[in-house]
Design a protein around this nucleic acid. Structure first.
Lengths: 180, 180
DNA sequence: TTTATTTCGTGTATTTGATACACTAAGCAA
DNA sequence: TTGCTTAGTGTATCAAATACACGAAATAAA
């Protein structure tokens, strides 16, 4: 939960990006505004209003490094979070809920994959987040029917088994809403 | 677009409610946090961060009255808004988008109806917001299949025609997410 | 070179949900 | 009694989601 104070002439998202960078060394992630928490008692020390953002990344792309403000950083699975300060557990719950819900109607899952990926990798993202196994044929049918990814023509050869086709997002610039 | 400054020990939603009341005399509405706007240039006079909320009501239940802060108040159809200050047009656009999208997967439409209502009234809410005509039989089938409203046993007699069954929401306390 | 192992990639039948579509019922007024 | 208005209902079709099993391609080991 990296965070900090907004500069007087700083944009909100820029601030979130800066604090993330300063405390973890991580840059270039997808950020989305989550919610603004302003209960007068949420921080007993003083009145704090938190405009919260969440970031998404591929986990293997990240090596958080404690720096300036933070003395220690680490990754935690959402099922085993440590004790959190203030209302930070509520914030994470809300982010998790938002993420799961957007998984169903948007292309947000691609923000957790590298530019080039296989359908099995994509399915794994969904399976981890939804915490259930999906049928491979139906998953592929569904994803491909939405026309949001395309084959690159390349194959991933990484093991003693059949290579997988490598795909990429057709329009990677933004999160698309897939209405159904 | 009623609004104003947060008191130092005031909750965000309480502030929105208070400002709405102070400027329009309107109370008791459904409020939902929309987004927080914080671009440093959005108000040229000074740095202002706006935690925005939208409210929903039945239109015939509201008589906005200008008071303390506001010199004038009036209703405007979203298709014919007057010139708006700062980024207020953007804010309204976002609220409209949120409303339309929630219409599809939640019970938000009921916040625009009185406690007791007929299916025709409900359908009218959807038709106005979606700006299209819906098939009566399919609409009713769909709504009733979701099991979110129930008959009261009463009928509305208000014209020289067959009376309509009066319905109410089964669980009016909250906006429910209807996953499909 | 053959076999075993692993992951990749594919098609069809069934079920479920969404859509298209038209007439009778009930009240009131003329 | 007739005319007008809005309420209420069923079925057939189409589209989408689900259930389900096996051959293909690569590598490693025998």
């Amino acid at each position: 939960m990296p965070g900090g104070f907004l500069d007087i002439d700083e944009d909100l998202e820029a601030c979130a990006k800066r604090e993330l960078q300063e405390e973890t060394g991580i840059e270039g992630l997808y950020l989305e505004q989550l919610y603004t928490f302003g209960n007068p008692q949420r921080d007993p020390r003083e009145r704090v209003i938190s405009v919260t953002y969440f970031a998404l990344s591929q986990s293997d792309h990240l090596m958080p490094k404690a720096s300036s403000d933070a003395t220690q950083t680490a990754w935690f699975p959402i099922s085993h979070l440590p004790e959190l300060a203030f209302d930070h557990a509520t914030i994470i719950q809300l982010a998790w809920k938002r993420l799961l819900s957007k998984l169903g109607y948007s292309t947000i899952a691609f923000k957790m994959l590298p530019k080039y990926f296989t359908l099995s990798q994509l399915q794994t993202v969904y399976e981890i987040l939804l915490n259930e196994n999906l049928d491979k044929r139906n998953f592929r049918k569904g994803i491909l029917a939405r026309n949001i990814i395309k084959e690159t023509g390349e194959y991933s050869r990484n093991g003693s088994h059949r290579p997988a086709k490598i795909y990429q997002v057709i329009n990677p610039s933004q999160i698309e809403i897939i209405k159904r």
